[in-house]
């Protein structure tokens, strides 16, 4: 049976039924970073704590990647199967704007200020058949 492995440890809580993005907050100045880092870019302090950044945010800017990137891009796609994807920065309640792939891939589906929901999705399969999981944001479904 295949496992679902995070693409990188420490980016999000996993496995989890309600995954959260993870970052770090400076003990000295309270500024937040993503991904988590041991030192603070704002004040230079070396004391930071891992914090949950939340699973919902607001779209701050966006674009659509229409061509397949060269390496280091590493998905299961080929030039023939590549599908454009959205990319944006999502403003998180944890106090930082996080760059992320977005589910919508058409301009009319994206708008600055729209609420976005975190999802953890299979991105590619590794040589032993495990699913490599990454994070993505999609528009919050209308109630």
């Amino acid at each position: 049976m295949s496992n679902q492995l995070p693409i990188h440890e420490g980016l999000f809580t996993w496995p989890s039924t309600k995954p959260q993005l993870l970052g770090s907050r400076c003990v000295n100045c309270a500024e937040t970073a993503f991904p988590a880092q041991p030192d603070c870019r704002n004040c230079g302090s070396r004391e930071t704590n891992i914090v949950e950044l939340g699973d919902r945010g607001t779209l701050w800017t966006w674009t659509i990647q229409t061509f397949m990137p060269k390496a280091p891009y590493h998905s299961d796609e080929t030039a023939e199967t590549f599908k454009p994807y959205g990319v944006g920065y999502v403003e998180m309640p944890g106090g930082v704007r996080v760059e992320s792939r977005l589910l919508p891939s058409k301009p009319d589906e994206l708008k600055i200020g729209m609420p976005m929901q975190l999802e953890i999705i299979p991105f590619r399969t590794n040589h032993t058949g495990d699913q490599i999981m990454t994070f993505r944001f999609s528009p919050v479904a209308e109630a």
């Binding site: 693409i7 990188h8 980016l11 991904p35 674009t63 990647q65 990137p69 390496a71 280091p72 891009y73 590493h74 998905s75 994807y85 990319v87 760059e99 992320s100 792939r101 991105f123 990454t134």
Partner: peptide, 14 residues
């Protein structure tokens, strides 16, 4: 870290 490039976010055009 590598995940940033692997998932297609490390492009100047973007």
């Amino acid at each position: 870290d590598e995940w940033y490039g692997e998932t297609g976010m490390m492009l100047t055009t973007q």
